[in-house]
Design a protein around this nucleic acid. Structure first.
Length: 352
DNA sequence: ACTTCTCCTTCGACCCACCG
DNA sequence: CGGTGGGTCGAAGGAGAAGT
């Protein structure tokens, strides 16, 4: 399909009767002194010809693409919100964000996305800690592409300069302590996918929350992916025996909601017999009956930090607000990981 | 097979007229 | 002569097309 030639800066210059550089100055460099007459001629020519800047040529000239890449596990829930917020943040710096999903961690697709982003000469990359392999990340960093990881634990410092992580471990500790304070005599963690970083963090925090109560309190770590929803509830009931109430802390709100539905089906009372705490603070956790206690994900703060740090790595000037943000948070980095607190939203699933 | 041109824009270097 | 305003010039950039 051959397209008719679009007007270029050359056409505008010829139409306005000035040089190409003058057109460029009028359109982009307002600080260069120019007569009002020249500005008027150029602007009129632009309108007459319907000129639109050619971004590819601009990038070629600037040796920058002003494009950033984001790789996330999928587009749902928290990740969708993260992408939307980050898009807004980087846009305020004059950057465009291209978002890709890792499509269930398929290494072939991951490589294809990565290659595509590199061919597009992205100026920086943001990746979820699970969405990219160590090998791909190493390649990226080796080529000098600035990279910020979010929700990635245990990455080697020589690869990752900063990982902006939500403190799932701390939140999980808080969840367990909330159950204990509510008098739960059995506490269960229902997770997803063994070996996943975010899951491991939750388990770590879960055990820390039990602390000295680990011996006296019935507790277990279940894999809901393996057991299924019904199987998870059955196993929780079996392990708990006569101990009530049972506190079930789930990997996310979706899982908590599914468990809630099964409890309703079986006539198990929530929160009297089973208490539930989810994660993500999805809209439905507030709308369900009873509403589900959950943790709010500070996406606003997390994306602000990711954007500000990435911009600093790229060499962009930060405004006062972003400078202050980095000054406040960067001293809190441990090795290269920054932890952000989640806020527990207590609802009816844990209050009698 | 190899070299040169073309695409389009930016930006530092440079030019010229004018003024005090 | 030096400073300033209002411009222009030309190199650079990566990759595909065109020319030799």
């Amino acid at each position: 399909m051959k397209r008719s030639k679009q007007p270029t800066i050359v056409d505008v210059a010829s139409e306005a009767g000035v040089s190409i550089a003058t057109v460029s100055n009028v359109l982009n460099r307002r600080k260069v002194p120019m007569s009002p007459e020249t500005i008027r001629k150029v602007e009129e020519a632009v309108v007459r010809l319907g000129y639109r800047r050619n971004v590819m040529a601009t990038n070629l000239s600037r040796r920058r693409s002003y494009e950033l890449g984001l790789i996330i596990p999928h587009f749902g829930g928290y990740y969708g919100r993260f992408a939307e917020k980050l898009e807004q943040k980087v846009h305020s710096f004059g950057y465009h964000l291209s978002v890709f999903s890792a499509a269930g961690m398929d290494p072939v697709i991951e490589k294809r996305h990565l290659e595509h982003l590199l061919q597009r000469r992205v100026d920086g990359l943001v990746s979820h800690g699970l969405a990219m392999s160590m090998e791909s990340t190493q390649q990226l960093v080796g080529e000098g592409t600035p990279l910020v990881i979010f929700n990635g634990w245990g990455w080697p410092s020589e690869i990752v300069k900063l990982a902006v992580n939500l403190d799932f471990a701390k939140a999980s500790t808080e969840a367990v302590q909330h159950f204990l304070a509510n008098g739960c005599r059995s506490i269960i963690y229902a997770g997803r996918r063994k070996g996943m970083g975010a899951n491991e963090q939750r388990i770590k925090g879960f055990m820390a929350g039990l602390g000295n109560n680990a011996k006296s309190t019935v507790h277990a770590l279940l894999d809901a992916g393996e057991l299924g929803i019904e199987g998870t509830l059955e196993e929780a009931l079996r392990i708990s025996g006569e101990q009530r109430p049972i506190g079930i802390y789930t990997f996310n709100d979706a899982l908590a909601l599914e468990l809630l539905a099964v409890c309703h089906e079986r006539g198990i009372r929530v929160p009297e017999d089973v208490q539930l705490i989810g994660m993500d603070n999805e809209l439905f956790s507030k709308a369900s009956f009873p509403s589900i206690t959950s943790f709010d994900m500070p996406v606003e703060l997390q994306t602000s930090l990711v954007a500000a740090f990435l911009m600093r790595q790229i060499g962009e000037d930060l405004d006062e607000e972003n400078t202050q943000l980095l000054e406040e948070y960067l001293p809190r980095i441990h090795v290269h990981e920054l932890f952000i607190d989640l806020e527990m939203i207590v609802r009816k699933s844990t209050t009698t």
